[in-house]
């Protein structure tokens, strides 16, 4: 029977039992937002187990998908069941999107992993709701860790970095790549640096540049007094070299978060952020409703706003 015909509770029930089609469908409903998505949030929330969420970000072509592909091959050997959200931009003109990250992430079918391609759908606010929703859904269905791939920086990436416990920033060897990453604000969000394509010339120079910049900049861990300094790792994703070590660095960061109760703080901030996003969305909808058909009636705009606010918050 087609999963499209199931009610939301039936669908979530099947998803929680591990039915892959039901999980796929559930993610669609989460991405579309609205009431079904809220219902799914309520139904999946109790089943969450606190999966580790890892953001993987960096410039286009840095090798994020190849690295992610290697991870989803490696993690099952550690007894883990990874899920991936691969985020790509929607076309601002048509709303459509081409999502191509799976090309470099083959070989998971049947290994228990799960890959979902996500389009940004025009406004970052949408992702701010759907990404935590999808992460929660994966978590509830027994996946962990959840890996989120995003390109570059921007509102979308800030939202996504906000959704992650650990953010891995991928750069490549080459003059200026580290500088670019710095300019793009990636230094501040990085918990782990990966210099991918280490088979190329200049990997050591890039490492030196990064170390230098870390010495000079405000690193989150150092900032909050926990003394954490993001490690710099080298990988050749195409051959899988360095991928295990990279994962160890990610788990070390997780251990650090747990040891310093930073994890709790991060997750609490994330919780507040998601509640705020949801609240904003609700408010915006209500505001839109109350503005519908509103015409000047002689009162000042300030008075009208104050009166409407009183109604809305009543």
């Amino acid at each position: 029977m087609s999963v499209k015909k199931l009610s939301v509770p039936e669908l979530v029930g099947r998803a929680l039992e591990g039915d892959r089609r039901a999980i796929g469908r559930m993610l669609t409903l989460i991405e579309r937002g609205g009431e079904p998505a809220d219902e799914i949030t309520d139904l999946t929330h109790p089943a969450t187990k606190g999966a580790h969420v890892v953001g993987i970000t960096g410039a286009p072509g840095a090798g994020k998908s190849t690295l992610t592909g290697q991870l989803i091959r490696h993690l099952p050997t550690l007894g883990l069941k990874p899920a991936v959200l691969a985020v790509d931009p929607s076309s601002p003109l048509t709303g459509g999107a081409i999502l191509g990250d799976r090309v470099r992430m083959d070989d998971v079918a049947g290994d228990g992993g799960f890959i979902r391609s996500v389009a940004t759908r025009g406004y970052a606010g949408g992702l701010a709701l759907s990404v935590p929703g999808s992460v929660r859904a994966f978590d509830a269905c027994g996946f962990g860790p959840v890996l989120i791939e995003t390109v570059g920086v921007g509102q979308v990436e800030v939202d996504v970095a906000g959704a992650a416990d650990t953010t891995v920033v991928v750069v490549n060897p080459g003059w200026g790549d580290a500088v670019q990453a710095n300019k793009a604000g990636l230094l501040e969000v990085a918990d782990v640096f990966v210099i991918n394509k280490a088979d190329r010339d200049g990997a050591n120079d890039t490492r030196r540049d990064l170390e230098l910049m870390l010495d000079l900049s405000h690193v989150s861990g150092l900032e909050d007094g926990t003394g954490y300094r993001p490690p710099i790792l080298m990988t050749t994703a195409t051959d899988g070299l360095g991928v295990e070590a990279m994962w160890e660095a990610v788990t070390a960061h997780q251990a650090h978060l747990e040891a310093t109760s930073a994890l709790e703080r991060r997750r609490a901030a994330r919780f507040r952020y998601e509640v705020a996003s949801r609240l904003t969305t609700r408010m915006e909808r209500s505001i839109a409703r109350s503005l519908d058909g509103l015409t000047p009636d002689g009162r000042s705009p300030a008075t009208v706003a104050a009166d409407l606010a009183a109604d809305l918050l009543a």
Binding site: S65, I98, G100, D101, R102, V103, R104, D106, T238, D239
Partner: peptide, 10 residues
């Protein structure tokens, strides 16, 4: 030598 996977440019 290993094998090659294409660039995902559409």
């Amino acid at each position: 030598f290993g094998t090659y996977v294409e660039q995902a440019i559409v």
